[in-house]
Every structure is written in structure tokens, then in C-alpha cells.
Amino acid sequence: MPAYDDDLRLAHVLADAVERVTMPRFKATDLQVEAKPDLTLVSDADRTAEEVLRAQLGRTRPRDAVQGEEFPDTGHGPRRWVLDPIDGTHNFVRGVPVWATLIALIDGDTPILGLVAAPALGRRWWAAQGTGAWTGRSITSAKRIKVSGVRSLADASISVSSVTSWAASGRQTPMLRLMERCWRDRGYGDFWSYMLLAEGAVDIAAEPELALYDMAALVPIVTEAGGRFTDLAGTDGPFGGNAVATNRLLHEQVLAALTPQAG
């Protein structure tokens, strides 16, 4: 039995529980939405979903710490569940089906498990350390995924966040020039860019400002699919406040292109 088999099964149980909360609230006419102090949106579904996750983890993993987007951190110890109840809240409140629940388990400083559940798309992706990356509706109905073999930027498909976000980071010009060098550029958004990368449909995904809960679940999926996930400085993992993910073959080229000096 794989080392994280029980944790991975629990992650699917958590995703099932959250789906029963989020899907009835998606496109609900009485959805309550407000702006948080950082001007990002939060809905009643975000908070209820995280409460469901925390309650289930409190019963099944009482010794583990929990870190989420909507409520204060709880617990101590090396094992930490990192949760984003609805990644893509702006899409959720506008009726766009590209949103997902992100569930990650970090042991020390290593993301060892990640699950992305996008019920409005009818898709899930998951991975645990050493198990490969998978997509499907359940563990028993899944196919393994892997990144592309594209080696040239001229043949690469890149998915990035908004131009304004890159301008705020001081890297707008390098990003625009990188996009011009690529075969195709799109902004699939949030988690979806990285899942498409893990499937081999996209070769580069990058965002200039992200929180740990935005990234932690993505890292095991991208890396177990054969890709690489770093911050803009090239440090592996989800702790740098921003993200560059590639099929590994293009990673150094992309990092070099996105340095401020490249502008």
C-alpha cells in the first residue's frame, strides 16, 4: 500500500463532502458575496465549504494542523493540510464553471499530496508523492497524466494571468516578450492552467502573486506528472509567493525570460 494511500482516500472523501455544499450554491440566486479587506471576493459557499473541510479533518486527522483561506490556522506539528475551498471565486460568483476545491497535505516543507476537484467541470486531478499524477472522477476510475515533451518556446503553449497583475509585479514587459516567443498564449486561469500543464495540453503556466493555499495542491500534481513548479526566483515548491510551472524541459528558458533584466 502506498505511503499516503489513506490520506489520498481521505482527500477524495473531503472533496465529495465539499461538492455537496458548493454545487447547490453555484449559480444560486441568493448567493451572498462580499469583498474582503484585500478586495478579493468571498461567498457564503467559500466559508461553508471550508468549515466542512475543517470539521472532517478535526474528526479524522485531529493531530494534523490545518491552514485555509477563510479562517485562522489551527493545530501544530509537521503535517499540515492546506485548503482553498473555492479557487476561482470570481468565476464561481459569475457563473463560470472554472473553479475548484484545492486540498493539499504538506509534511514539514514538502507538499506530499494534492487534489484538485472541479465539480462544475466534472473533473478531478490528484497525486501523492511517488504515485504519479491522475485524473478522473474517483480513484477507481482514473487515468495517469504526464506533461508534454515540447522543448522549444516556439512550439510552446503558455497560460498566464492578467497583464495587469504582471504590470504590478514589474515583469509586464518580460512576460509580454515571452508570450510573443511562444506558439500560443491563453489565460485559462487559476488552477486550470496547471492541470492542463500536468495533462500535457499546456507547456508553461505562471502567475506573479499567489498564496500558499493557491499553490500547495498543484505542486504534487505537476511534479508527479513530470513537470517542475518553482517561484520566479527558481526555488522549487509553493512557498515563494508566485509560480512558474513548466514541463521541466522549458523551465530554465522561462525563468531566464521572466527576469526583470530580460525586459
Rank of each mutant, 00 (worst) to 15 (best):
Leu258Asn: 00
Glu207Pro: 05
Glu209Asn: 10
Gly130Trp: 11
Leu39Met: 11
Arg186Gly: 09
Thr246Ile: 09
Phe229Cys: 02
Gly187Glu: 12
Thr131Glu: 14
Tyr4Asp: 04
Ala206Leu: 08
Ala257Trp: 09
Arg171Tyr: 11
Ile158Glu: 03
Leu255Cys: 07
Ser157Ala: 15
Asp64Met: 02
Asp6Trp: 09
Gly227Ser: 04
Ala201Asp: 14
Ser161His: 07
Asp30Pro: 04
Gly130Met: 10
Leu210Gly: 00
Tyr188Lys: 11
Leu176Pro: 05
Asp203Lys: 03
Asp214Gly: 04
Ser43Asn: 13
Ala156Tyr: 07
Ala35Val: 11
Pro37Ile: 06
Trp125Phe: 07
Gly200Leu: 09
Phe229Leu: 01
Ala201His: 14
Arg59Ile: 11
Leu113Val: 05
Ala216His: 00
Val93Ile: 15
Phe239Arg: 02
Ser193Arg: 07
Ala243Leu: 14
Asp236Leu: 07
Asp87Thr: 04
Glu19Met: 12
Ala168Cys: 11
Gly136Pro: 02
Leu212Gln: 00
Val96Thr: 13
Val160Ile: 15
Ala45Asn: 09
Arg181Tyr: 04
Gly263Cys: 10
Trp166Leu: 09
Gly136Arg: 04
Leu218Ala: 02
Asp185Pro: 06
Leu8Ser: 01
Arg47Asn: 11
Glu34Asn: 09
Leu115Lys: 04
Ala65Val: 02
Asp231Ala: 00
Gly240Gln: 05
His12Phe: 15
Arg9Tyr: 11
Pro97Glu: 13
Thr74Ile: 12
Phe71Ser: 09
Arg20Ser: 12
Leu83Val: 12
Val66Ala: 07
Ala201Leu: 15
